[in-house]
Design a protein around this nucleic acid. Structure first.
Lengths: 351, 351
DNA sequence: CTGAAAGCGCTTACAG
DNA sequence: CTGAAAGCGCTTACAG
């Protein structure tokens, strides 16, 4: 029998401690059982262990303050209890609220969520996807996915993926959790018609995003259904930020005739437009009506006057959890599933 | 020699794929070398491998699209490349900006950051600390730590911890990255004296937070140095949120005589106070002057009029990275180190 | 009900 | 310059 030559760790967080980390082996020794038995107690395979043994092992665990190392289990099972959550912009309070909802829902299922900020950048997205894969994540939630090679690869590999708010940017990407953006956009178009707004304009989000595209298309079709046409010069594309909204408004409000009403791809864009309106002394809604989207949690503080579409961010977490569960249970057809959440137009003073 | 009986994974993300994950063993086989050699190439131990072999292994890696599994390495080294970042409130844009800065700085060092939202809750903080420990994190950054048993334990275990913005809530907790809150508070006090504001009030943050406490104490001492005393009834404590600031203002502005100026523990509190001022028709700064803290990134959009203290959130990432590096290099004395960043009072119209 | 043993995917001291 | 082997901390099929 060859003697152990090496294999011990060289350094590390715990390497610096003289005592070292307490492992399952220490517990087993102290309790006078095998590590298999400790493991069974840990995993609640109680029917296979006598009550007395369970008691003894439990008390040793408590006494030693033993906590199993996640990494050991993950490697053995080739699956960790981690779920990666990719979000395009952590400073967007709407996204932060969704992330928080997902985190709570997963935690109740003893799954830990890791938050990753992709900044809408495919390379960063791929870096995080690979990261999560390397940690043997049991799933990945993509809020606002962008097309990328790494995402293609994961889709092909049938990794449990859930697309939130924005549909998968490729065919057969996976299940979707979100609202019917087209229908909501259409309702806004109808509302603009009812209000009899002449010269409507729109500042929509990135057309790479299904959510932005569908909001815009719904809006356009809502107008068209009443015979109102949208002038191409009144259609702008902007990033989903206040400053992008502001910049778009600088351009849009510099030309005559001014639009009578503007549909903004999200609330942040609307905030930016509103600032520009004040700068050039345009009253909202008397001179220009504004409609946003998302019902950003900041509205209450930043823009209690903004008419918008309330997207139920609190429901995203439970819905995402349900979809993951079906993915993990390998329910057939789940990869094509769409979990459509209710939305609701909120009419405040701006439109 | 016993035959292999088991050990194969039962299920998992990759278990569902017929092909399975490509491991270091597949690469070794295809390249006609041992897994040790592949590992050396992977880890850039180039001086120990011939150029020709490196080439061959590299091309096989590329061809097969092999990416090493993080978990394997982490378990072997008893250290992952993960750093946990605990933050008290993801929806606070100031915290989000710091988290983003830390993430960028660590990523440049090929360390991945995991964002965890503690909600200022000790139990949640402990759950995340344990989580990070289980993933063999190489370090943990705590933005706004609260006292908790788990934190005590990690401090005792000499885990690499960095305390950001708020000092460790126990003695010898670890290095600190932030500004001199006391000095900044004091300058605000002096400014109030110079402006000759009578009847100053303060709505400070949680007194469990060193940052909040020092801001308040500095402010009080700044007034006291000029012989101005702070009436106890003008001192309120509030959570660091808009709604808590609003509630405090409801109380504070309900009593006569009204305060002439209010120092708010952070900008969000100031936003809440400002809303209340509008509701009761108090002009800012004519009737009530307001001073905030942090220079929240939202100021530009939400409150371009707010006088505040600019805290250089962009510098927090690089500073945190430097401190971690010294912790990892086991530099002596680093656990007592304080990395003090520059701050600057920003005088806008509110005070 | 319990244990000995294999093995998850890596890294590295040792021996050539 | 390279490989065989040990081992990181777990889980679990198999044998009792």
């Amino acid at each position: 029998m060859p003697r152990p030559q090496n294999g011990g760790p060289i350094r590390g967080v715990r390497g610096s401690r003289p005592s070292g980390k307490v492992t399952i082996e220490h517990v087993a020794e102290k309790a006078g059982v095998s590590i298999a038995t400790v493991s069974r107690v840990l995993n609640g395979i109680d029917k296979k262990v006598s009550g007395e043994t369970i008691e003894r092992v439990r008390s040793v665990i408590a006494e030693m303050g033993y906590r199993p190392t996640r990494v050991g289990r993950a490697l053995r099972r080739l699956e960790s209890h981690l779920v990666g959550m990719l979000i395009p912009d952590t400073t967007n309070a709407f996204y932060a609220a969704i992330a928080h909802s997902v985190e709570s829902a997963l935690r109740a299922d003893s799954t830990a969520m890791i938050l990753c900020n992709t900044a809408e950048n495919p390379a960063v997205q791929d870096a995080y996807l690979e990261e999560m894969e390397g940690h043997l994540a049991r799933g990945i939630a993509l809020l606002g996915a962008v097309p990328s090679p790494g995402l293609e690869r994961l889709v092909a590999a049938a990794t449990p993926l859930v697309f939130i708010n924005r549909k998968p940017p490729m065919a057969g990407g996976g299940p979707f959790v979100g609202i019917d953006n087209y229908a909501a956009g259409r309702e806004i178009g109808q509302h603009f018609v009812e209000r009899n707004y002449q010269r409507c304009a729109v500042i929509h989000g990135p057309s790479g995003s299904s959510a932005s595209r569908e909001r815009f298309e719904g809006f356009r079709d809502g107008l068209a259904a009443a015979g109102v046409r949208l002038d191409d010069r009144g259609v702008h594309e902007a990033a989903l930020t206040m400053s992008a909204g502001y910049s778009a408004a600088v351009e849009l409000l510099d030309r005559q005739p001014l639009p009578r009403a503007i549909f903004c791809g999200n609330d942040l864009i609307a905030y930016g437009v509103h600032r520009r309106c004040r700068e050039v002394n345009l009253r909202v809604p008397a001179d220009v009506a504004l409609f946003g989207f998302d019902d950003n949690p900041l509205n209450e503080w930043l823009a209690p006057w903004l008419s918008t579409v309330h997207v139920p961010y609190d429901q995203f977490g439970p819905a995402t959890q349900r979809v993951f569960q079906r993915l993990w249970d390998a329910k057939p057809g789940i990869r094509q599933h769409q979990e459509l959440l209710p939305y609701r137009l909120v009419f405040r003073s701006s439109a």
